[in-house]
Simulated assay, not measured.
Amino acid sequence: MITVLVAEDDQNIRTLMASLLKQEGYHVLEVDNGEAALITLEEQAIDLLIVDIMMPKLDGYQVVRTIRNDNLQLPIIMVTAKETAEDKKNGFLTGVDDYLVKPIDFDEFLLRIKALLRRAQINLEGRLIIGETTLDLNSLSVSQGKSYTELPKKEFLLLYKLLSFQNKIFTREQLLNDIWGIDSLTDERTVDVHIKRLRKKFPESDDFSIITIRGLGYKGVANETK
């Protein structure tokens, strides 16, 4: 059974979220502050975290930052009343995978959870399929119809990362830390060089694109079916 941790200090909202998730067949754990969330993550196997920003002891940003600093690839949805572009930017830069603003549309809430869990499973299986394109982690290869391309490891991991979390913005620093290692002495411009190589190898893919987010970094997107 999939275990979801809900970290929310508003008891009514937390209880409602937990009830909806249980109805969908998830095992749910509840905490009302950031410190308890981190303790629970140490003691329990959690498949997905739902975290509010404004919480006692540790806020949502601090919780997510701690998780990512420990290099945990846990899927995280941030749920908050803060809805400015700057708030969302801070959330994504901290390392959340998705962001929902209160009051929550609970149908959308459940759909986003299912989408994040699918992505997490894809990462475990090491195989990602987007349209007619297949990325195979075991062979570091990209297949598109009759075309088969083996990539250098860093190029493959960069493409795999971006396409596993479609529409999520990654900064150059995040990509550098995740793929080259947090202790790497490699310059962030290395990311730009590898992106340029990938674009040359897949210049007009019908299935995906790598988008530059000015002033931030990059995101991978699945192209709409023509």
Score class of each variant (00 low, 15 high):
residue 2 I to F: 04
residue 89 K to E: 10
residue 59 D to E: 14
residue 15 T to G: 04
residue 220 G to K: 03
residue 134 T to Y: 01
residue 49 L to K: 01
residue 83 E to A: 14
residue 220 G to I: 11
residue 167 N to Q: 05
residue 150 E to F: 07
residue 86 E to V: 10
residue 201 K to D: 06
residue 219 K to G: 05
residue 181 G to R: 07
residue 46 I to N: 01
residue 36 A to Y: 00
residue 112 R to Q: 03
residue 47 D to H: 14
residue 54 M to L: 15
residue 20 L to G: 06
residue 198 L to V: 02
residue 69 N to A: 11
residue 225 T to P: 05
residue 217 G to N: 05
residue 46 I to H: 07
residue 185 L to G: 15
residue 171 T to L: 05
residue 213 I to Y: 05
residue 90 N to V: 04
residue 65 R to D: 13
residue 223 N to R: 10
residue 52 D to V: 00
residue 64 V to G: 09
residue 126 G to D: 03
residue 176 L to F: 12
residue 161 K to S: 14
residue 43 E to L: 07
residue 56 P to C: 09
residue 73 Q to Y: 04
residue 186 T to S: 04
residue 159 L to T: 05
residue 213 I to L: 07
residue 101 V to C: 01
residue 185 L to D: 12
residue 155 E to P: 02
residue 132 E to K: 13
residue 163 L to F: 02
residue 205 S to D: 13
residue 20 L to F: 09
residue 88 K to N: 04
residue 99 Y to E: 02
residue 73 Q to H: 04
residue 132 E to H: 13
residue 17 M to T: 03
residue 33 N to C: 06
residue 192 D to M: 15
residue 21 L to P: 04
residue 3 T to V: 09
residue 164 S to G: 15
residue 23 Q to L: 12
residue 111 L to V: 09
residue 33 N to F: 00
residue 57 K to Y: 13
residue 35 E to A: 12
residue 41 L to D: 01
residue 23 Q to Y: 04
residue 146 K to W: 10
residue 193 V to F: 12
residue 185 L to H: 15
residue 34 G to S: 09
residue 147 S to M: 13
residue 110 L to C: 02
residue 72 L to N: 11
residue 121 Q to T: 14
residue 105 D to L: 01
residue 1 M to N: 10
residue 99 Y to K: 03
residue 142 V to I: 09
residue 83 E to W: 11
residue 184 S to Y: 06
residue 26 Y to D: 01
residue 22 K to G: 10
residue 224 E to Y: 05
residue 21 L to C: 02
residue 62 Q to L: 12
residue 127 R to I: 13
residue 156 F to L: 08
residue 42 E to T: 07
residue 82 K to N: 07
residue 223 N to K: 09
residue 116 L to Q: 14
residue 130 I to H: 06
residue 203 P to G: 08
residue 29 L to C: 08
residue 72 L to I: 12
residue 54 M to R: 11
residue 31 V to T: 01
residue 11 Q to F: 09
residue 196 K to C: 14
residue 208 F to G: 14
residue 209 S to K: 09
residue 212 T to K: 10
residue 136 D to F: 04
residue 195 I to C: 09
residue 191 V to M: 15
residue 132 E to D: 13
residue 197 R to I: 11
